[in-house]
Simulated scan of single mutants.
Amino acid sequence: MAPETSELTFRTAGHGDVPALVALVESAYRGDASRAGWTTEADLLDGQRTDAEAVAESIDRPGTVVLLAEADGELLACCLLESRGAAAYFGMFSVRPERQGGGLGRAVLEHAERTAGELWGAEEVEMTVIGQREDLIAWYERRGYRRTGIRSPFPYGDERFGVPRQPDLYFEKLTKTVAI
């Protein structure tokens, strides 16, 4: 399928975007609606992925930007970038489930990598991915990310991150060197 990015525009999120952002993130990862796309975590986690308070805190956090990808004023995707010295952390990456698989996610990821370099001179982009998400990790590897082998525990007992459906979840750190 050809990328559907010709009309894509990017902007920074503000507080007025919080409800739409929460709805987008939840639709991409949780519940039956997320199963329309391939990034669902519904088999691994129940509960919420984020909430309005967490998204608003991200928008306000110094050294952090939440990017929105829109077409004709419609929110299609988002991500978070956070400056971490020579690196930028990439997270909260969400694409509307019915728009996944058409190149939109790749376009957003590439824009985020350029933005990290332009804003902060980041030489590397890093992220954490649930280790059991082999299909998603493979997608990132095809885009130049590498597995570091660095793992961190899933925050069991903190329902702000979801309710695990299995006892062995963990995060794995991925990194990519980006041109500045």
Rank of each mutant, 00 (worst) to 15 (best):
A88C: 06
S94K: 07
E134Y: 10
G162D: 00
I180R: 14
T5I: 11
A54W: 10
A56L: 12
Q48E: 09
Y170Q: 14
W139F: 08
K176C: 01
M92V: 15
R165P: 00
L67Y: 11
G73C: 12
E53L: 14
A87K: 09
E134P: 05
T50I: 08
T128L: 09
E141R: 10
Y170A: 15
A116L: 04
T64L: 07
R106D: 15
R147G: 08
G91A: 13
V66H: 11
L169P: 06
P3C: 06
L119T: 07
L80M: 15
Y29P: 09
Y140R: 02
R151H: 09
R133L: 05
R160Q: 12
V65I: 14
L136A: 08
L104F: 04
L109K: 03
M92L: 15
S6L: 14
R151V: 13
F171C: 00
Y145N: 04
L44W: 00
V65E: 13
L81M: 05
E126A: 12
R61C: 15
E141H: 08
G37D: 01
T5E: 05
E124C: 02
E113P: 03
L174V: 02
E4R: 14
G162A: 00
P62N: 09
G162L: 00
I150F: 13
I180A: 12
A138T: 12
L44G: 00
Q100R: 04
E57F: 11
L109S: 02
G157P: 05
L169I: 00
D135M: 11
L75I: 08
G144Y: 00
S6Y: 11
R99A: 13
Y29W: 11
E98D: 13
P62T: 05
E98K: 11
L75W: 04
V18G: 02
C78I: 07
G103C: 09
M1V: 12
P153L: 09
E134A: 14
G117Y: 02
A71W: 05
L8Q: 01
R133G: 03
V55I: 13
L45S: 07
Y170V: 10
Y145E: 02
L136K: 01
V22Y: 03
A23D: 08
R96H: 11
P97R: 07
S58M: 15
S94G: 03
A179E: 13
G131E: 07
A107L: 02
W120A: 00
